[in-house]
Write a protein that binds this DNA or RNA. Structure first.
Length: 959
DNA sequence: CGTTTCACG
DNA sequence: GACGTACGTGAAACGT
């Protein structure tokens, strides 16, 4: 077998090449690979005699582009030869199960070779070897001659060749493939790709690899052990038992796999390197060939170019464009068509592509007339801070919508190939478009309607456009439906309009074939994007009147709608993170984890993976026979922290060590490691996303990353909070509601004694304990207060004797006695709970103080366990939901209050009962006063609302 | 891709 | 008296 390092070849070959064609770039086209990909990417087109030619068309377009745009001087097109290759001798199954190529493809193999000859390009193949080996060998020769090489292919098997002087180019996606792209695909640098492939195998080529190991695992292993041989030698050290065994059992199979995927760089080349030059094609021969295939537009283009260059005089009459290369529909609005998916059939669609400011002005006028404008933005990414604005769609009445492309590149969809590359479609410059739209977007008399408008709001805000006033169909639906379920546009279109929207995957593909929206051909982009605006407007027509009918106007108008720009600004601002500090913490945690893992293994009868609850359970309860039992439907032992704590108290040291390990592992993987990845390169800050229509109670939630669960309860965890820092010259200000949920219980259930305690400003848990257990405050002990505190929390969660007992570590009977005493002392509570459960049973939802509906599923259940669960939700939801409402009301008022107070403070995060701000140093105290005032005044209740502020250099210190 | 665990309120 | 339990989230790791 050959080896990549075997470069002991003809020094004279290299010398020759250097003298004749030094420095000239060599293009190696993977002809065989291209045939298959083009065939599957393009619709099957036939020439007049019925011969399919779609791959041939893609191929000629690609070559034309290569020769014209890249000014390629040295090109070879390489094909697989017929018959077996040397790899079949290594492993007979290699590529053995390949199905016959489709009938429509077979005749195209010969045509593509013919096309290559028509272009007068070297057309190479070598019996016994694959095209990839020939490419590998030429790449090596060129590299040694000091000439850069571009391999025109996207075949992953060629990626091992990428490196200094050798790059790849994906001809269908028009994208270069360099070391970074290879590393992204394989998780390792190009020179280690073969090792990863050897482990992961390839089902298409029948490379066996090691069973159960995919690319991700393989990359991780190679990264850790360096290369395949080192890994196989040290396979015994692998933690996961199944994986360890597989690597041992299939070591030789991995070695064979490596020989299969490793390309031969020393095959006897059919042509010397220096012969691979581009010759001027015989134009008449080429044109004859192209015409014979029916490629009229290619011929027309070629002739036009040759004429321009004065190279031919003969001009065949320009033919009508063939369907495959026809330009996308231009700005003329297509004739109205009936919307097929609208059952009523009433709505007629007219979607228009807007490519000039004049055309845009018509739409702006329409918006001013109707006072309505549905808006949707298309981007190349879902991250609003970095996304490029690719286009904007508008709708002014149902069925009447347009799409304004702004940053579309050359089209590139499954239906069309355009190798003209450099020629993007005509588009209004983004700045000019935004300038033209700014007035109407900020016009108080035109309502802008969006779906998840927070995203669009951020995009416009980035360009200095403050869109107002706005409606958000996602939030209207959320308010009407009472949380939960899906409020995505596709779901709503189906449910409310009976309309199935064009799936995003239809225009952009999915997985590895996905393209960004700027590569979508304009006809498809128009259909998709204009539909989004159209559907948004039609959803609004269906949903908005229901707010009035269902008495949800106030919730929407005063709580959720005003929050959109506020949350958008918070996300856009982000929060500063001290990366170096996180990195230090990660390193520290890493070493401590290794120490603890060592101790755990020492205490264990056999090695196991500490991170696997399943294995841990077996060790603890079978090998060590510790007391404890099975649980759950899956039959697995429970090993959560309450179980381990129990074991640790009985003296099981291993349980304590595992607890320690778990805590640190969690901190490292979820926080110190992951958070570093989330730092935005441009801003140096972390930008979370707050979901506004996700929870059943009206709370926000936070994702990518979740910044609402940053540790604080343990000292170890608090160190992570100290990595959240203020900009130099600024402080962080944290303001949180004190006991808001318990205050709301007192108010909503109208519990006189509890309300009085809050009025008196007492320590509420101590006061509760005093009243429930009849102990004077001055005789209160910590233990009794702890019990009262647990009951208070229990109330909020929809208390049960079992749950409270488990929390306090006492028998359920005893806990029930506490609850009974509590309900007797605060007798109003029982009445409110009964009333609330009855309401939920009747309506399927419960209201917050401000009227938000919280949907409760399963309240009618026959199964008592499921019904009890729903009843606890029914108790908890009005409390949690009202707190969420109050916080949202405060958030909507805070920015204006700060501005009015002359403060430059910026709101960064919301953590349910806490707001975090970044404030210029001298203003922190004043900002704290303003925020506290707004938060405490966000609702007028029968109990006082209290907000407490803390100021510090880090989030950890602002408490 | 479902399950388990655990971080927060 | 059944039935399996505290409420609401999101992310990482494991293992099929």
């Amino acid at each position: 077998m050959t080896d990549q390092t075997a470069a002991d070849t003809t020094a004279d070959t290299a010398a020759d090449a250097t003298t004749t064609t030094a420095g000239e770039e060599l293009y190696l086209v993977d002809g065989s690979g291209f045939i298959f990909r083009a065939f599957h990417a393009l619709p099957i087109l036939t020439r007049p005699d019925g011969t399919p030619v779609n791959a041939v068309l893609g191929f000629t377009n690609m070559l034309t582009k290569l020769l014209a745009d890249l000014k390629a001087q040295a090109v070879a097109v390489v094909f697989d030869a017929k018959g077996d290759t040397f790899r079949s001798n290594i492993y007979p199954a290699y590529k053995a199960q390949r199905p016959e190529p489709p009938e429509e493809l077979k005749p195209q193999f010969a045509l593509i070779r013919e096309a290559t000859h028509a272009f007068c390009l070297p057309c190479l193949e070598l019996e016994g070897f694959e095209a990839d080996d020939l490419i590998a060998t030429y790449a090596r020769l060129a590299r040694e001659a000091g000439r850069p090489v571009t391999i025109v292919s996207s075949d992953k098997d060629l990626m091992q060749l990428v490196g200094p002087g050798v790059r790849m180019f994906d001809p269908l996606k028009n994208k270069p493939i360099g070391p970074a792209e290879v590393a992204e695909k394989f998780g390792v640098p190009p020179e280690k790709v073969v090792d990863v492939q050897a482990l992961a195998g390839d089902s298409v080529d029948n490379v066996p690899g090691v069973p159960g190991i995919g690319v991700k695992t393989a990359a991780q292993l190679i990264q850790e052990y360096g290369d395949l041989e080192s890994l196989l030698a040290r396979a015994g050290e692998i933690k996961q038992p199944a994986r360890r065994q597989k690597l041992i059992d299939f070591a030789d199979q991995a070695r064979v796999s490596r020989r299969l995927v490793l390309l031969d760089q020393n095959v006897p080349v059919p042509e010397p390197l220096e012969k691979l030059t581009v010759r001027e094609p015989d134009h008449q021969k080429l044109i004859d060939f192209l015409r014979a295939q029916g490629f009229r537009s290619v011929v027309a283009r070629l002739e036009a170019e040759l004429k321009k260059d004065g190279r031919i005089v003969d001009g065949a009459a320009p033919a009508a464009p063939d369907p495959a290369t026809a330009p996308p529909p231009d700005a003329a609005a297509p004739p109205p068509v009936r919307s097929p998916a609208t059952p009523a059939g009433e709505v007629v669609q007219r979607y228009e592509l807007v490519q000039s400011l004049d055309a845009l002005a018509v739409w702006i006028d329409r918006a001013r007339e109707t006072g309505l404008l549905a808006v949707d933005t298309e981007t190349d990414s879902l991250t609003p801070s970095t996304a490029t604005l690719v286009g904007i769609s508008l709708a002014t009445e149902p069925g009447l919508a347009c799409y304004i492309p702004l940053a579309h590149g050359p089209a590139q969809g499954s239906g069309q190939l355009d190798f003209d590359g450099g020629a993007p479609p005509p588009q209004i410059p983004t700045d000019a478009c935004l300038e033209a739209l700014k007035d109407v977007l900020e016009d108080p008399s035109v309502l802008k309607i969006g779906h998840n408008f927070k995203f669009d709001h951020q995009l416009f805000a980035r360009s200095g456009v403050r869109v107002t006033p706005t409606d958000d169909t996602m939030l209207i639906s959320y308010v009407l439906e009472g949380g939960g379920q899906g409020h995505g546009m596709d779901d709503l279109a189906l449910k409310l309009l009976g309309h199935t929207t064009i799936p995003y995957s239809d225009v952009c593909g999915t997985g590895r074939n996905a393209i960004t929206f700027d590569r979508v051909p304009l006809d498809k982009a128009l259909a998709y994007a204009a539909e989004d605006a159209d559907i948004t407007l039609r959803l609004w027509k269906a949903l908005k009147p229901r707010l009035v009918a269902e008495r949800m106007v106030t919730v929407y108008e005063t709580i959720d709608r005003p929050l959109v720009p506020v949350v958008a600004d918070m996300e856009r601002c982000g929060v500063r993170i001290d990366r170096a500090e996180l990195s230090r913490l990660s390193r520290d945690l890493g070493t401590r984890l290794e120490e603890i893992a060592g101790e755990v293994q020492r205490l264990s009868p056999r090695p196991f993976n500490i991170g696997s609850p399943k294995q841990l359970g077996e060790i603890l309860f079978e090998d060590l026979s510790l007391p404890g039992g099975k649980k759950g439907k899956t039959g697995a032992y429970s090993t959560d922290s309450s179980v381990l704590e129990g074991l640790a108290e009985q003296g099981a040291e291993i349980a304590q060590r595992v607890l320690d390990w778990r805590q640190l592992a969690k901190l490292k993987s979820t926080y110190t490691d992951a958070l570093q990845e989330q730092i935005d390169a441009r801003t140096g800050r972390v930008h979370t996303s707050f979901a506004m229509a996700a929870t059943s109670t009206g709370r926000l939630s936070s994702t990518d990353p979740n910044l609402q669960n940053i540790p604080i309860r343990t000292e170890e965890g608090r160190k992570i909070r100290r990595a959240f820092v203020a900009e130099p010259g600024c402080k962080l200000l944290s303001v949180d509601y004190s006991q808001i949920e318990l205050r709301l219980v007192a108010d909503i259930a109208d519990i006189a004694a509890l309300k009085q305690a809050f009025h008196d400003g007492l320590d509420i848990h101590a006061a509760t304990a005093s009243q429930v257990f009849g102990i004077p405050l001055d005789k209160m002990t910590g233990e009794i207060r702890r019990k009262a505190k647990a009951i208070n929390f229990g109330i909020i969660y929809g208390i049960s004797g079992f749950g409270l007992g488990r929390q306090l570590g006492i028998p359920p009977g005893e806990a029930n006695a506490f609850i009974k005493a509590y309900l007797e002392r605060f007798h109003e509570l029982k009445a409110w709970m009964d009333k609330t459960k009855a309401f939920a049973r009747e309506h399927g939802h419960v209201p917050t103080l401000f009227g938000r509906k919280c949907r409760i599923n399963g309240i009618q259940e026959k199964n008592p366990a499921k019904r009890a669960f729903a009843e606890r939700q029914a108790i908890n939801a009005p409390i949690q939901g009202t707190a969420a409402d109050i916080m949202k009301r405060a958030m909507a008022r805070v920015p204006d209050a700060l501005a009015a107070g002359g403060s430059k403070a910026r709101m960064l995060l919301q953590v349910h009962d806490e707001l975090l701000f970044e404030v210029p140093e001298g203003e922190a105290e004043e900002a704290a006063r303003i925020v506290r005032r707004v938060m405490e005044g966000a609702a007028t209740l029968g109990v006082p609302l209290v907000a407490e502020a803390g100021i510090g250099d880090t989030w950890g210190d602002a408490h």
